[in-house]
């Protein structure tokens, strides 16, 4: 039975000065643990997109991360507006991001599809006016 590394992060709302800090911290931990660069990259992409979604759409939120020798589990939860049509939101190119966000280069409508593409397990729980929880698992040996 190996050790499990557990980390929790706050994700502030609409604060782009710290957006990506949680993902950045996790990337460092994985690198230090000797996880393969491929798995580090997949994790970074999936977690960054989920983190940015919480910043842009979810009024901020929190990230809970569990790392063992085989995988990383990331749970990003917010108490934002929820996703009205999850199937539509999963489609590449669909975005509800406002112009102010698009001007920074976000809002391509690739967030959720990038998460799906770069994770091994993805479960999204969302409820209108209650919030969204994104559960991501990346296996290191894939």
């Amino acid at each position: 039975m190996g050790n499990v590394v557990v980390r929790d992060y706050m994700i502030p709302a609409n604060d782009f000065t710290v957006a990506g800090e949680a993902s950045s911290s996790v990337r460092k931990i994985l690198t230090q643990l000797g996880v393969t660069p491929h798995a580090v990259k997949r994790t970074s992409i999936a977690m960054y997109e989920a983190e940015i979604n919480a910043v842009i759409h979810g009024h901020g939120g929190k990230a809970h991360v569990e790392i063992d020798e085989n995988k990383i589990f990331i749970q990003i939860s917010d108490e934002g507006p929820g996703i009205a049509d999850l199937e539509l939101a999963m489609q590449e190119g669909y975005s509800t991001a406002p112009d102010s966000i698009r001007e920074m280069g976000f809002g391509a409508g690739m967030g959720l599809s990038n998460i799906k593409k770069h994770s091994d397990l993805l479960k999204i729980d969302t409820e209108i006016n209650r919030g969204t929880t994104v559960n991501i698992t990346v296996f290191f040996n894939k």
Partner: peptide
């Protein structure tokens, strides 16, 4: 783009 996120993404990637 020259906003703060560019530095974060360049570092992550």
């Amino acid at each position: 783009h020259t906003n703060l996120n560019v530095a974060a993404v360049a570092s992550l990637a």
